[in-house]
């Protein structure tokens, strides 16, 4: 869907990105992560030409992005940034309608699409449709931002630290919704963040950047199981690295099909080992029951099996 070929970007003398090559496939949830100054935001903005690359070629749907007029290209790519990016003088409805209007949709179609998106993002249409951004909470503003990016049903969504300004609880619920939307629509998402937990939670593929170069590009699990450098290892977090690993592994991988009494609240096979461990610690037990969707007993997970 998106391909960077030998991309270099320099602002005057300062080289931000040098000789970058990567490909993002259709349907991937690709998270660009790195410390500040690693060039992640610049790379994202080169995709929709908010930043023009200095050398090389960026392909979008197989065609060089310079073969499109920038506005035409951008209308085909959803773009969401922090909540401050909403147009403060427009209502929620007008904000979401921006791209469809630029594309010249009929009013009935736009109105129907807005209703659809408000439902998709759990926003009460009656309450929010004609509200102004400043009347909304941070989380609601961000939902509107995502709805605006989705409005014209683009194949690709670019998201530049969209949840950066939110409190942890709101951020988690929006992450869950984004995952749900990704699963439901199969859109290609390119997401920039500096928060490793967010990256591990959302990504189907992580691209870890340092100083404008790709350090490692793999699935979160591969990165966690085999970090390819001390930089990646450190970036993953020295202290809770093990817990992060557990959060990507499933109960079904380690459970035994034995049926003995257990005190903690049971877990499901597709819960993470992190959750299972948490339940055991909370109940001061060394095992937890595994149950199926109907509550039927499937087996037991032992503490010793988590660490081996």
């Amino acid at each position: 869907m998106i391909e960077f070929r030998n991309i270099t970007k320099a602002f005057g003398e300062t080289v931000i990105v040098q000789d970058l090559n990567f490909k993002i496939n259709k349907g991937e949830f690709c998270v660009l992560i790195g410390p500040s100054g690693s060039g992640k935001s610049t790379i994202l903005k080169m995709i929709n030409r908010l930043v023009e690359h200095s050398a090389g070629e960026v392909l979008f749907a197989g065609e060089p992005i310079r073969s499109f007029r920038p506005e035409i290209l951008r209308r085909r790519i959803g773009y969401a940034i922090q909540s401050v990016g909403l147009f403060p003088h427009w209502t929620v409805e007008q904000n979401i309608a921006t791209v469809p209007q630029l594309l010249g949709w009929r009013p009935e179609r736009i109105a129907a699409r807005i209703t659809e998106l408000l439902v998709l993002l759990n926003l009460d249409a009656a309450r929010f449709r004609n509200a102004y951004p400043h009347q909304l909470s941070g989380g609601q503003q961000q939902r509107v931002g995502v709805a605006r990016a989705l409005a014209a049903d683009p194949d690709v969504m670019l998201m530049d630290e969209p949840f950066g300004a939110l409190d942890p609880i709101t951020r988690e619920s929006l992450q869950a919704e984004l995952l749900r939307i990704h699963a439901a629509t199969g859109k290609t998402i390119v997401f920039v963040t500096h928060d490793m937990d967010e990256a591990l939670r959302l990504a189907s593929r992580l691209i870890i950047l340092e100083g404008g170069k790709i350090v490692q590009s793999a699935s979160p699990r591969e990165v966690l199981e085999a970090p390819n450098s001390s930089f990646v290892r450190e970036f993953l977090g020295k202290d809770d690295y093990g817990l992060k690993l557990l959060s990507l592994q499933l109960v079904s991988e380690r459970m035994k099909t034995v049926d003995i009494p257990c005190s903690p609240e049971p877990v499901k096979p597709d819960d993470s080992l992190h959750l299972a461990l948490s339940r055991m610690v909370a109940a001061k037990a060394n095992r937890v029951a595994v149950v199926g969707p109907m509550g039927e007993r499937m087996g037991t997970l032992f503490l010793t099996d988590i660490v081996t």
Binding site: R75, I81, V84, F87, L102
Partner: peptide, 27 residues
């Protein structure tokens, strides 16, 4: 006019003229 709002306007595909009339001028 907040620079993020202008960037968002460009990012969703407004032409420079549209950015001026729809976003910069009213704000």
């Amino acid at each position: 006019v907040p620079p993020q709002v202008v960037e968002a306007a460009r990012g969703v595909g407004m032409t420079p003229t549209q950015v001026f009339w729809h976003v910069e001028l009213p704000l």
